[in-house]
């Protein structure tokens, strides 16, 4: 679907100045989209947390989602791999198109989607009783992979991609819980990578980390985008500005503005975005 067509369907509130998405992003700049939401809505019980969001996530780029606490960033992210529906009372409406197919079609297995669209959470959550090795290959084993060579190859590849191999290659049998916070988070990223996803969703992946560990993850993300599409939710605007190619600003469940990161942070079109990123909010 053409970008302009998606725009016509956009239902950003009337009181906001309508901005043509095609003004902000061009095909030349963003390339093809990997993931797309069409009129996506999400609820917790009666509370509508996401309100008809239309967004195209470009392939092999980093897209950041920013906004104040409670604006629906994490909910939006969890809709992209059908994790939202796990929460009791939660439901979604609309479409999430992954490579041309709606992941919410009744025939689609959510487990398959969660393998294709991996997730990294705010707090590093390695399996505490497992070794570094077992943590990384857990997903593969769960999918029935038993071949030792294949597991070893996946282990080394994932740990290298997550910039962790050199630090743990001699400690593979030690507990994953014994690693530092930053290492644990990179272990979780390695675990997500081992099952060879196409998209990686990151929900505040550095909020519990110090600046050095954060810098490593950010460098790793920029390397990872060569092969993966990444969506990151962050409340750290400087982080969004540093790592992402495109930025979406959400407020009260609505997509207020989406554009190239440099444009959002230098010259946003919407007054609301301007006020939020300059800290003049509230």
């Amino acid at each position: 679907m053409a970008l302009s067509e998606t725009l016509e369907e956009s239902e950003i509130s009337d009181d906001l100045e309508q901005t043509s998405l095609s003004d902000q992003l061009t095909f030349e700049k963003i390339g093809l989209s990997k993931l797309e939401t069409r009129s996506l809505r999400a609820w917790y019980g009666k509370n509508e947390a996401i309100k008809r969001i239309n967004l195209q996530v470009p392939e092999k780029q980093i897209t950041a989602v920013i906004g104040p606490s409670g604006c629906g960033k994490s909910t939006f992210l969890r809709c992209l791999n059908r994790m939202h529906e796990i929460t009791p009372g939660a439901r979604t409406e609309g479409e999430v198109i992954l490579d041309g197919s709606n992941i919410y079609e009744p025939t689609v297995d959510p487990v398959t989607i969660r393998r294709r669209v991996g997730m990294v959470f705010q707090k590093p959550n390695p399996f505490p009783t497992m070794s570094v090795y077992d943590n990384v290959v857990a997903g593969l084993k769960l999918n029935g992979v038993r071949d030792k060579d294949r597991l070893n190859q996946a282990l080394e590849k994932s740990l290298k991609l997550s910039f962790l191999w050199d630090e743990v290659k001699d400690r593979l049998k030690e507990s994953g819980a014994g690693l530092s916070g930053g290492q644990q988070q990179r272990l979780c990223i390695a675990r997500a990578l081992a099952v060879e996803p196409e998209v990686i969703l990151m929900d505040e992946p550095c909020s519990a980390l110090d600046p050095t560990a954060t810098a490593k993850i950010e460098q790793m993300m920029v390397e990872l985008k060569k092969g993966y599409t990444i969506v990151i939710v962050t409340h750290n605007m400087q982080q969004a500005a540093r790592v992402s190619d495109n930025t979406a600003f959400l407020y009260l469940g609505e997509l207020i503005e989406f554009g190239l990161t440099e444009m959002i942070f230098e010259n946003p079109k919407q007054e609301l975005t301007e006020r939020y990123i300059t800290g003049k909010f509230g």
Binding site: M237, Q238, F265, E266, E274, I277, T278
Partner: peptide, 9 residues
């Protein structure tokens, strides 16, 4: 402060 938007301009 890593100014952005109107502050940066």
């Amino acid at each position: 402060y890593q100014p952005v938007a109107s502050d940066l301009r």
